[in-house]
Every structure is written in structure tokens, then in C-alpha cells.
Amino acid sequence: MTSGPETRAEFLSKPHGFTTRVLDSDILHSFKQSKLTMVAAFVTLAFIIGAAFAPWIAPHNPFDMASIDLMDSLLPPAWEEGGDSRFPLGTDDQGRDILSGILYGARASLAVGFASVLFAATLGITLGLAAGYLGGTFGTIVMRIADIQLTFPSILIALLIDGVVHGLFEGVSRADTAYWVLIVSIGLSFWVQYARTVRASTMVERNKEYVQAARLIGIPPGLIMLRHVLPNVMGPVLVIATINLAVAIILEATLSFLGVGMPSTQPSLGTLIDIGQDFLFSGEWWITIFPGFALAALVLAVNLLGDWLRDALNPKLR
């Protein structure tokens, strides 16, 4: 890290972007070295593609109520006795195709996951930068809010927000609000991590000579922070974000169990598992095991990616 004084022109012309750092580094090399990481990346990508193109890939549309026939319910996977080739992985208690359910469910899970991480990261980075740079009363207030935030674990937040939303918007059905409730409540439980990381980094950088120098030559504080601090924290932020994505997906599933997840008419993977667990003892294992397996595979892949990313971006470990 250079810390000598720079001229304004030098500062502005130098590439500080994250991409350059990635390309400069041997991250790509480390990626190619680890087979496990490549598999994880492949699985993650497959899920993202499957989810994004679910309407075109899935054999059925599980959200189209008119296409669901109760008489098709509880069919086992196609290869089992009594299975039906129309439903390769069997059907659930309403007659929904499990395979289509998983594709659409992954779509819901990933959408909630990405959106909540994005929400948390945006909120956390902004507040962290501001708190770290401005410090003082503002910084203290932000960090106290962070403390309060930590006081409310995600589960409690979701239960509370869900309740408030339904109190405020009476008559709005679960289906319409569930996404937003989940994104906000999961996102709210994550932002503190970003804020703390970014704030710590900002506070270290703030006192470095180059920042003082940049300020002396009249570069606006916002720009300094953006150009200098952000690239420095991008690594840890990306690692946190990846791990958070995995946690968010699990959290959404957990909230389904508590009754505040995605509604059963628009199931996520978690909702499918929760519906299916009622049928675990009665022998209709496919309703919960396949979505469970899909969820585990997805989360595991994302976690492995996060792991690799952490090691790869940590220069000390290279």
C-alpha cells in the first residue's frame, strides 16, 4: 500500500478499482487450483441459471393454480412404484411438481438472499463510511444503533416486522408483503457487520498521511473515502456478502418454519422443506428431502465460494 503524498492529478489517475486488484492478483490462479471451489462455483452458477430461467426450464408452473390438480398429489418420484413420468421428482400434497417447485423455490430463495444482502451491504457501507470518517457524535450514534440492532436477532426482527406490516397494511395478503418483510428483516440483521468492518477500515485510513494530504489539496472527503477506503474494504465486504448470502437463504428457510417465510402459494426452498417435514414420518420423503438437498447443495456451494474468497483475498495467506 502506498502511503506517500500524492498530487491531485496522480490521485485521480491511478487505478484504485477492485477489478484491477483482482486481475493483478493470482486469484484466478488459486481458483483453478482448487477443484472443490470450481465445483462450488459450478453448482452456484447452475442454481442461479436454473432459478433465473425457471419459467422456461421447469416442466410445470407451480404458481399457476389452475394447472395444479389435487388428484395428482403425493405421487412419488418417477422411478418409484406409482410414480408418473410427468413429475420426475414426484409431487407434493397439492399436486405440485417437486422439480418445478425446487426451480421456482430456488428463485425465491436466491431473490430474497441477494436482495437482502444488497440492502444490508448498501446500508452498512454507507453508515460505516460515514461513521468512520465523520466520527464524533454521529459515529457514536451509528454504532449505538448497531448495538441496538444486534440486540434484536434476525428471527425476532422478522417476527416483529411481519406483525407490524400486517398491522399497518391491513388486508394486504402475505403473498404481497412476504418478499419485502423477508428482505428488510434479514437485511437489517446483517448491516452491522458491514458497518463495523467499513468503519474500522475507514478509521485506520482516516489518519494516514495520504488522506490528510488529499484533504489539504482540496479533494472532497466523500471522494477520498470512496476512492481509498472502498477498495480496501471491498475484499472483506465481498467475503461477508458471500457468507451472508448463504446465511440469508438458511434464515429465510428458518423463518418459513416459524410461519413468516414465503407463503405456500409462492414457496421458497425453505417453505417447501417446511411443508414437506409434515410428511417425513408418513413415508412421503420426497416432498422434503429433494428441496432439502437442493437447499443444502446451494448453501454449501455458496459457503465454499465464500471460504475460498476469504483465503484468496487475504494476502497473508497466499
Partner: peptide
């Protein structure tokens, strides 16, 4: 809830679109 879902899908077959709002009993 399963009964309501089934009713929703049966009504869909005669063209009625039902938005299901299933909630815990307290709510």
C-alpha cells in the same frame, strides 16, 4: 391451509383467481 390451497386451485379451473391469505389463527 391445505384445504384453502386446494379450493384456490379448484376455483382457478373455473376462472376465478383467488389470492390466498393464510395466517396463524391469532392474526
Amino acid at each position: 391451509e391445505a384445504i384453502c390451497q386446494a379450493v384456490v386451485s379448484m376455483l382457478a379451473k373455473i376462472g376465478v383467481t383467488v389470492d390466498l391469505n393464510a395466517q396463524p389463527k391469532a392474526k
